[in-house]
């Protein structure tokens, strides 16, 4: 059996059991609504466009935040890889920051930027930056010395060597860094929106919860999960796979 078919079958069974359990009254509809109610809540949300607006608003923040995170992360990673002093000082700070979930910055961010767009984007940026930094740093440090030696015998040095050889040679790490940065940023965004004002998927989730609309809560959770999985598997893992193959890292 193909993995795809196995997967579909698995989800059909899980949702089927869930529906059966709800029907049989094994648990209260308020605690865990049935799949059908969740589906209905999603359809209503899409029809009255709230979920559409939420998606657009969330993605806007994500794209802005992630773009800034990748830019800062890459620059900082290059700095750490190239300067021992920076690595010894800023490097340890980056490691410390990376182990702090970015959402804990929200209270400070709200003080600095007010309860709005900027505070959430700030948390998203912090979510994605450091994991990118660490990957870029390792990527540049791990460039095969052979490539550098070969390039030098061909008259390449300095900035030319860096741009034409070292940076492209570390692309596999840049891709992995971006994938992880996306994952961290996506989680940070949801947490930020949950504690902030709308529109946005996280905001709608909390709003639905405040009004006891558990079907919509689960519906939004499904959307968040599906988007996370789809972006990771359909976009990043594919790029990662082809890069690893081309860069000859799979053997």
């Amino acid at each position: 059996m193909k993995p795809a078919i196995k997967r579909i079958l698995f989800f059909v069974i899980v949702i089927g059991l869930w529906q059966l359990g709800s029907k049989a009254g094994l648990w209260s509809e308020i605690l865990l609504p049935s799949p059908v109610s969740v589906f209905e809540a999603l359809v209503t949300g899409i029809q009255d466009k709230t979920l559409i607006y939420d998606l657009i608003a969330s993605f806007k923040r994500l794209i802005v935040g992630l773009a800034i995170a990748l830019a800062i992360g890459t620059s900082l990673g290059i700095l750490l890889a190239k300067s021992k002093t920076a690595d010894d000082t800023i490097g340890s700070l980056v490691l410390a920051f990376q182990s702090v979930p970015s959402i804990v910055w929200l209270p400070l961010a709200i003080m600095w930027f007010g309860l709005g767009e900027s505070a959430i984007i700030f948390v998203v940026i912090l979510g994605g930056t450091f994991v990118m930094t660490l990957n870029v740093r390792v990527g540049i440090k791990n460039v095969s010395p052979l490539y550098i030696k070969a390039a030098r015998t061909m008259g390449s040095s300095g900035l030319d060597l860096f741009i034409k050889v070292i940076l492209p040679a570390s692309v596999p790490y840049l891709v992995t860094g971006s994938r992880l940065a996306w994952a961290f940023a996506w989680r940070a965004l949801m947490a930020g929106e949950l504690l902030s004002t709308g529109p946005g998927l996280g905001y709608t989730l909390r709003y639905a919860s405040d009004f006891g609309n558990m079907s919509l809560v689960i519906g939004v959770m499904v959307i968040i999960g599906v988007i996370g999985a789809v972006v990771d598997q359909l976009i990043f893992q594919r790029i990662e796979k082809s890069v690893i193959r081309r860069w000859g890292l799979d053997s």
Binding site: Y147, R152, T153, G155
Partner: peptide, 27 residues
């Protein structure tokens, strides 16, 4: 190092992100 001395290593050391033409064009 300089282009007056070409070097071939035990491992090919050609760049995987470039095709054959681009690799030979590098120097």
């Amino acid at each position: 190092p300089g282009k007056d001395r070409g070097m071939v290593f035990q491992q090919a050391a050609i760049f995987p992100w470039m095709n054959v033409l681009e690799n030979v064009m590098f120097p």
